[in-house]
Design a protein around this nucleic acid. Structure first.
Length: 343
DNA sequence: TATCCGTGGAA
DNA sequence: TTTCCAAGGAT
């Protein structure tokens, strides 16, 4: 076994995290759900979502039987909604193709939608003891520092090298613990800023530590300009309900309900109302809000139209009146929910 | 293969 | 306020 792996496993016994909600179980459903929610998402953010999701869908069978809408509703605010759509599809695949029993190998798990190489390895090693390597953000950071790997880990060549390195370090025994030990080291000691090298079990062999480059490894993502976009949205209210429009199944906020979009301005609002088949009342502009995505910044300007009564509308599958006290039943983008909760 | 896909925490 | 990016995967 590599000295690196054995030191991490020994360190983990006393210093690892042992009480996260998805730990102390080998139920592949729970481990899978946690791994999906934790993709690109911080632990503290995931915890309440994970617990609420399990209360609604305690088993893969119950998840598979649920409407996608209910799944997206529980994902509101968590982001990367393709994860929820893939989660739902994968649950149905497990029920249909595997009789509701999760496949036990990483090779089979990776065939399920939303499960990539690292997530498959995490489930297979945690739940079934398969000797396969994970490579998440924590592991990348730890390996880049420990072995002095240059280059941005998002680059293909660097990532391939990291996968090979991660596999070469796998222990012969303790595979159920080793992935967790790596992640715990990255999350609690070998952090992005101000790593606590004084407490690290592998600091003596760490290239970054020896060369005082803890702050330079792993290499930063190359900078890119963030485009600015702006968009007007209609806030049509009648009684205690608001008119929502379901977004296309793919793309940003795919499958979520949002406020109908419009070109900005007073006349744009009235054009949009006519498109929706609503007699045009007075509209008034509300304060804009800015929302930051990873790859662009969006300025949303809501326009409020209050109707005396809910109009009877032509059959429009993507339009829906939703009571303001029932918003939790549909999936909503975070900034849209913010607008709706403000009034 | 580079880009797309959310949100909020931390510094 | 701005910058960076976190238990990544799909296309």
């Amino acid at each position: 076994m590599s000295e690196f792996a054995s030191r991490l496993i020994a360190w983990h016994a006393e210093n690892g995290r042992h009480d996260l909600p998805w730990q102390n179980t080998q139920d592949p459903y729970r481990v899978w759900l946690s791994e999906i929610m934790l993709q690109q998402t911080q632990v503290d953010t995931v915890i309440p979502y994970y617990q609420r999701f399990l209360e609604h869908f305690p088993t893969v069978t119950s998840l598979a039987a649920a409407p996608l809408e209910a799944v997206l509703a529980l994902w509101t605010g968590l982001g990367y909604y393709a994860r929820a759509r893939n989660l739902h599809r994968a649950a149905q695949a497990v029920v249909r193709a595997h009789d509701g029993i999760f496949p036990r190998s990483a090779a089979q798990l990776v065939e399920l939608p939303g499960i990539g190489r690292s997530t498959a390895a995490a489930i297979a090693s945690f739940c079934f003891g398969e000797r396969v390597a994970i490579l998440d953000g924590n592991v990348k950071r730890v390996l880049c520092r420990q072995f002095g790997i240059e280059g941005f880990p998002g680059e293909r060549a660097v990532e391939l090298r990291l996968w090979a390195l991660a596999e070469s370090l796998l222990p012969a025994t303790g595979i159920e613990i080793y992935p967790q030990a790596q992640m715990d080291l990255g999350a609690t000691l070998c952090t992005r800023s101000r790593p606590r090298c004084g407490e690290c079990p592998v600091s003596e062999t760490c290239v970054a530590r020896r060369t005082a480059r803890e702050g330079d490894l792993p290499a930063r993502r190359p900078k890119k300009a963030v485009p600015q976009r702006s968009c007007g949205v209609l806030l049509v209210k009648a009684g205690g309900a608001v008119l929502l429009e379901q977004r296309p199944a793919t793309g940003i906020w795919g499958g979520l309900f949002s406020l109908p979009e419009m070109v900005e301005g007073e006349s744009g609002a009235q054009t949009a109302l006519r498109r929706l088949g609503i007699a045009v009342p007075d509209c008034r502009e509300l304060p804009s809000l800015r929302h930051s995505f990873t790859h662009f910044t969006l300025t949303l300007t809501p326009w409020l139209a209050e109707l005396p009564a809910m109009p009877v509308m032509a059959h429009e599958p993507v339009l829906r009146w939703v009571a303001l006290d029932e918003l939790e039943k549909v999936g909503l983008p975070a900034p849209i929910l913010k607008i709706l909760q403000a009034r």
